[in-house]
Design a protein around this nucleic acid. Structure first.
Length: 959
RNA sequence: GGGCGGUUAGCUCAGUUGGUUAGAGCGUCACUUUGACAUAGUGAAGGCCAGAGGUUCGAAUCCUCUACCGCCCACCA
């Protein structure tokens, strides 16, 4: 079959993928006779479109899966998607907004229906895109975090945790996004450095003659804070509007400035509420004025202080961050408008001190970037400390490993300081809490009554099995309230955090909570491949869920890859416009090129700085392989007229074609040093690639293959094969051997490369199956995917051939360099003299004459023990062989002389270094013997080379 | 404020447990359109391994400090 001279991925990839799928090659089922290898995909959001991060992440997973599959494992890659609560709801809400509607207009049920509709239409886009990447997932098993089984798992684990006392409801300071109107986990409210202002406000002290609100006082910017008779206390805040909810002022107990005030009261300006002045060590004397206003309902630290000191909690904001429970003048104002108005009023009434510029970290909603409001709110929490315990142990005992290893510390550090997890979200899209309220029993503590007025604080429910009155946790709606028999029960309006379903992913996708054969066989999974951003969100929680639900860790290896950035180091993002779209790259360069370039661009766990030009390397490599195969196929066909040398049956052919059989079948006379060399190099490559993959050093595996296939195989062996194939003597046996080796080495190389570049390797491997010299390594392997992973054949490792061949290439290189440097016209073929004392080397070079002539472009080859010294000859010494190239009439004598001069200088320098080293007593006495010996050998060699080179310089100088 | 990573050729990066003269790809320059491939071949130029100390016979590699870049975590109002 004729192959075109260029590889065109477009004509191959899609149809080849469909063929794989149709053959069922991605599928894995329970098979007790084989060992499983399992990966669960980090489920992409249904709103997602493929970006470079996905491309890298899934390429790595696919490499592992394809590699393990070839090694004979029953390899399962479970795909699926995540419902991505807030993200998806936002997308659908935006679509609604275009129709001029809000979700409230539709109502809850209709809205959710609308989201499902959207999901059906667009939610699998990302999965189709993963197919374009070549991902060999078992698509029959595709799961979705809101499908029936997984929803069941979510409710099940909620109830288990609740019954174990690990889920509780409490009023807590949470991050509240006023735009999305939902609570956000800490991880969902990333902090950004923000330039803000620090407002100083003066609170009059009760009974110090300033209780009249400071009217008529002169404005002074210097706080008068004497320990003796202060009439006000000045505090500093970045959010003045929260002062309306202040219920105390806190100072450090040892702060001399305020000691006298502790226990007294201050008057809250504008509100005229009496608040107490308390002491707490948490207060930093050095910050601001050293006095802090305490707003327990609107700040995490203040919340703690509030609980500790029994303060009142006053919520002054509504869900959409407008003021409430405040003096009429401020009621209903937006938080920022209120801030402005307050500043004016405080200033007018003389309560305002200095306003400083202040840079601080402010949380922003990760979806809409609105500044979050820390806010007291009734929410559901998972108690994390008990869950973290086994998850910490697993890592400490080495049962769970991270690569790169450094993430272990990050993981442990977080786990050991873990905070409870706020799992309720005030959105509609997600798993609704399996919680019902009885209005009879619960006194209006239901979900509808959120965040208004003065909320009593609840400590977390401390002991298990202490059910709150009127709160019923149940998978389905209970008929009646078990306490009072009331039939009017209302389900909690909240849904669960998206991660509350993802943390079950490794076992929920395999059927949990049912006891399935899949679970039994495939769990625990093996490797989890993910990005560093979600170690806390997801990885850590999966480990905890694994131990809680399955009593076993969910995976034994976590591979954390780097982040794909643009060439300047910025994260790729739409708003920056620095996106390189993987699908564009696939169109332009091919999937294999994309995969190859991504993989070779990152050492373990390092970030990738990507630029588009880099993909040419991958494309060129695929093209190189394509053309090498074209050559091998052509060579095979050309040899078709030698049937006697060809084994007749397939069975025979397999025997003759196994690794060990290559040399034996051809007989000792037919195998040449280059043959032995390439076979030996192949074994080293098999070992190196396998070892690298074992250590997750994907870039090293790919680079080793690139070097071997491109340089060793194409640059050297293919060129040699051309000579060996055209050569008539000594026998056609040699030609047969050469052809067999060509096919064998290429075929093995393709198998090694298949996990990284699946498409082109499959295509070419299929082509090779049609040749006379094909090697069929697995019986009935229909695809390279099912071919066996190569194993090294130690018998073919041939140090002698390797060192001889290295000498050969060095001699060829020396001749080429000389020719190029002296501008010898390419059609001129000067004779060459090889001078060496070693008889073995002489006979070796005698036997390689024709190769030398072709590869180095020389005429007659003279091998001798002694130099005849032609006057105008260029020469070089490599590996103890002197190479003399008589170039009568072709040399630029001056130039060559200068070059030799330079060579002599360099050699002299190196020799001096070597000598100095050997003279160093410390070195000779302390360094290991082989290192010292190496240095001696090196020195001797240098001396020899220098001597010869100097002689030639002398010759040149005489010319 | 803590923690982590990075700094090696013009660019992007490798560099195994310290050990000959520090490598690759891209780019550059020269020659080559030879029957696999110009998405190629051959050859060349290009590095005080961020800086300063230290350990060692020997340091890109180990230690300390400094500088810059980038991430993560954290309640300084």
């Amino acid at each position: 079959m004729e192959l075109p001279s260029q590889y065109n991925p477009q004509t191959v990839e899609e149809s080849r993928y469909q063929w794989w799928e149709a053959q069922g090659l991605f599928q894995a089922d329970v098979d007790p006779t084989r060992k499983p290898y399992t990966i669960v995909i980090p489920p992409p959001n249904i709103t997602g479109i493929l970006h470079m991060g996905h491309a890298l992440n899934n390429t790595i997973q696919d490499i592992l899966i394809r590699w393990k599959r070839m090694q004979g494992f029953n390899a399962l890659w479970v795909p699926g998607t995540d419902h991505a609560g807030i993200a998806t709801q936002n997308v659908v809400e935006r679509a609604l907004a275009k129709e001029g509607k809000t979700r409230q207009d539709l109502g809850r049920d209709a809205f959710i229906q609308r989201v499902w509709q959207w999901k059906e239409q667009y939610g699998n886009t990302i999965l189709y895109q993963l197919k374009r990447l070549g991902s060999s997932c078992d698509w029959r098993r595709t799961r979705f975090t809101m499908d029936e089984g997984l929803s069941e798992a979510v409710l099940d684990v909620f109830i288990r945790l609740y019954n174990d006392g690990l889920i509780y409801r409490g009023n807590y300071i949470i991050n509240w996004c006023p735009r999305c109107q939902t609570a956000l986990a800490d991880e969902e409210a990333p902090r950004k450095d923000t330039q803000g202002k620090l407002y100083h406000i003066r609170y009059p002290i009760e009974g110090q003659g300033a209780g009249d609100g400071g009217q008529g006082k002169k404005k002074s910017h210097a706080p008068r804070l004497t320990p003796h008779a202060p009439d006000f206390i000045e505090v500093a805040t970045t959010r003045p509007e929260t002062m309306l909810g202040d219920t105390a002022i806190a100072v450090h107990p040892k702060d001399k400035r305020y000691k006298a005030l502790i226990g007294k009261h201050a008057i809250l300006p504008l509100v005229n509420r009496k608040i107490s002045i308390i002491a707490d060590e948490q207060v930093d004397k050095a910050f601001g004025t050293g006095a802090v206003k305490v707003t327990p309902a609107h700040d995490p630290v203040d919340f703690q202080l509030g609980k500790k000191h029994g303060l009142e909690f006053i919520n002054v904001m509504t869900d959409d961050a407008h003021m409430t429970n405040v003096p009429k003048a401020y009621e209903g104002l937006d938080r920022l408008d209120c801030r402005s108005k307050l500043i004016v009023d405080l200033e007018q009434q003389g309560f305002l001190g200095a306003i400083d510029e202040h840079q601080h970290n402010v949380g922003h909603c990760y979806r809409c970037h609105t500044v979050v409001e820390p806010r007291l709110s009734p929410q559901w929490f998972v108690k994390m400390k008990p869950l973290a315990k086994p998850a910490i142990e697993a890592v400490k005992k080495g049962k769970l490993k991270f690569s790169p290893e450094r993430w272990t510390k990050v993981y442990l550090n977080w786990m050991e300081n873990i905070e409870d997890w706020c799992i309720s979200r005030q959105i509609w899209w997600g798993h609704r809490l399996p919680v019902w309220y009885c209005n009879n029993c619960s006194q209006g503590q239901g979900a509808g009554d959120r965040g208004q007025g003065k909320i009593p604080t609840h400590a977390p429910r401390p002991a298990p099995h202490a059910p709150e009155l009127g709160v019923i946790v149940s998978k389905s709606k209970p008929a009646t309230c078990p306490q009072c028999g009331n039939v009017d029960l209302k389900q909690d309006e909240d849904v669960l955090d998206t991660w509350f379903s993802s943390w079950l992913w490794p076992f929920s996708t395999l059927g949990w909570p049912n006891k399935t054969k899949d679970l039994d066989y495939f769990y625990p999974t093996d490797t989890l491949v993910t990005a560093q951003e979600i170690i806390f969100f997801w990885v850590a929680r999966m480990v905890m869920a694994g131990y809680f639900c399955m009593k076993d860790l969910p995976f034994s290896n976590v591979y954390i890859h780097g982040t794909v950035r643009d060439i300047t180091g910025k994260k790729m993002s739409k708003s920056l416009g620095n996106i390189i779209d993987p699908l564009d790259i696939i169109k332009q360069y091919g999937t294999d090129a994309l995969r190859y370039t991504l993989i070779t661009s990152t050492a373990i766990g390092q970030d990738i700085f990507l630029s588009e030009e880099r993909f040419t390397a991958g494309r060129n490599f695929a093209n190189k392989l394509w053309n090498a195969t074209r050559f091998v196929l052509a060579a095979g066909d050309a040899g078709g007229e030698a049937p006697a040398a060809r084994p007749e049956s397939r069975r025979d052919s397999r025997r003759a074609r196994t690794d060990g059989g290559v040399s034996q079948a051809a007989g000792p006379a037919a195998i040449t040093v280059p043959d032995r060399w390439i076979l030996s190099r192949l074994q080293h490559t098999v070992m190196a690639v396998t070892k690298s993959l074992d250590a997750c050093l994907f870039n090293e595996a790919a680079t080793a293959l690139y070097d071997f296939l491109w340089h060793d195989f194409c640059d050297w062996y293919l060129e040699i094969a051309k000579v060996q194939l055209q050569h008539q003597a000594p026998s056609t046996k040699q030609q047969e051997t050469t052809k067999a080796i060509l096919v064998h080495v290429l075929e093995t190389g393709l198998r090694l490369l298949h996990p990284v570049m699946p498409f082109v390797t499959e295509e070419l491997w299929q082509q090779l199956q049609h040749t006379a010299h094909s090697t069929q390594h697995t019986d009935k392997a229909v695809s390279i995917m099912k071919a066996a992973w190569p194993k090294p054949d130690k018998k073919l490792i041939d140090d002698e051939a390797e060192s001889q061949f290295e000498r050969f290439t060095a001699v060829v290189g020396a001749i080429r360099t000389t020719r190029a440097e002296l501008n010898v016209p390419p059609d001129r073929k000067p004779p060459v003299h090889l001078i060496t004392q070693h008889a073995a080397l002489r006979s070796f070079f005698e036997s390689q004459q024709s190769l030398l002539k072709t590869l180095a472009g020389v005429g007659e080859v003279h091998v001798a023990a002694k130099a005849q010294k032609p006057k105008d000859a260029a020469s070089a010494v490599v590996d103890g062989i002197e190479v003399i190239l008589p170039l009568a009439g072709l040399i630029d004598v001056d130039k060559e002389r200068a070059r030799k001069q330079q060579q002599v200088e360099e050699l002299t320098k190196h020799l001096q270094q070597a000598e100095a080293r050997l003279k160093d007593r410390h070195f000779t006495e302390k360094a290991p013997a082989e290192v010292v010996q190496g240095a001696r050998d090196r020195k001797t060699q240098l001396e020899e080379t220098l001597k010869k080179t100097a002689e030639h310089l002398a010759v040149l100088q005489a010319m």
